[in-house]
């Protein structure tokens, strides 16, 4: 199993944002986590990336316990994240953003992966010298994804990649996610847009108040009455 999470808890001061999360992701899978505002989705990804401390539970990558491994080390071990709100290095050029994505890799690997990312997102190649902050929202999202891919992740964490984007762009982003999945990238996708996320995913989890309340094949979740009522607006 690539990622195994057991009883994971995380706090902000006294607020318990994760109340014992169990989940797993197998190699090559695309797993979606859906949940309402404040359910703890971002906190989960932050804790997996090690930029927020776990207060209980374990995180295993390839069977190895990484719960206490510092965030930057986890990137080298293969966990890359596309954070909520994209978080590009706005004053820096598109290419520098991408190269920094490969910070933990060797120069040769960076050069090679940069070519692959440009092939996936030709728009980024066209704008390579532009400051990242001048890109449109959709382009910034592509940049954030490209930057995470530069780390050659074994597990790609995506936090609401569709947030604040026009429907046409959202469609493109989900097409890209599907394409990455076909190429064999293992993905854990967090979304409020439950319909789009479950449509591309293999499996899904529903997160409510820091707990997993439902776990199933994505198709089954899409058909579930409770999911339909709460998250699909049906």
């Amino acid at each position: 199993m690539l990622l195994e999470v057991e009883g994971l808890e995380a706090h902000y001061g006294r607020i318990r944002a994760l109340a014992g999360v169990d989940l797993h992701v197998a190699e090559g899978e695309l797993v979606a986590i859906v949940g309402a505002n404040g359910a703890g989705k971002t906190t989960l990804l932050r804790t997996l990336s090690g930029v927020h401390p776990a207060s209980a539970g374990t995180i295993r990558l390839d069977g190895r316990d990484i719960t206490r491994v510092a965030g930057p080390r986890r990137v080298a071990l293969g966990i890359a994240q596309v954070p909520e709100g994209r978080q590009v290095f706005a004053p820096m050029s598109v290419e520098d953003n991408l190269l920094l994505g490969g910070y933990v890799r060797s120069a040769a690997e960076r050069t090679e992966t940069l070519g692959e990312v440009y092939a996936l997102f030709p728009r980024l190649r066209e704008r390579r010298d532009q400051p990242a902050g001048t890109l449109s929202g959709g382009e910034q999202q592509m940049l954030a994804i490209g930057r995470a891919l530069m780390a050659r992740p074994r597990l790609l964490l995506l936090d609401e990649p569709s947030m604040g984007l026009a429907p046409r762009i959202v469609e493109q982003i989900f097409e890209t996610i599907g394409e990455l999945r076909r190429r064999g990238t293992t993905i854990l996708l967090v979304e409020q847009n439950a319909y789009a996320a479950l449509s591309v995913a293999d499996r899904g989890y529903v997160l409510e108040s820091g707990r997993v309340t439902l776990a199933d094949r994505a198709g089954a979740l899409l058909a579930d009455e409770r999911v339909k009522a709460a998250y699909l607006g049906l």
Partner: peptide
């Protein structure tokens, strides 16, 4: 510019 994003690419 962005400490969180820097940490997420592996910069300590």
């Amino acid at each position: 510019f962005n400490p969180l994003a820097a940490e997420l690419v592996g910069v300590d």
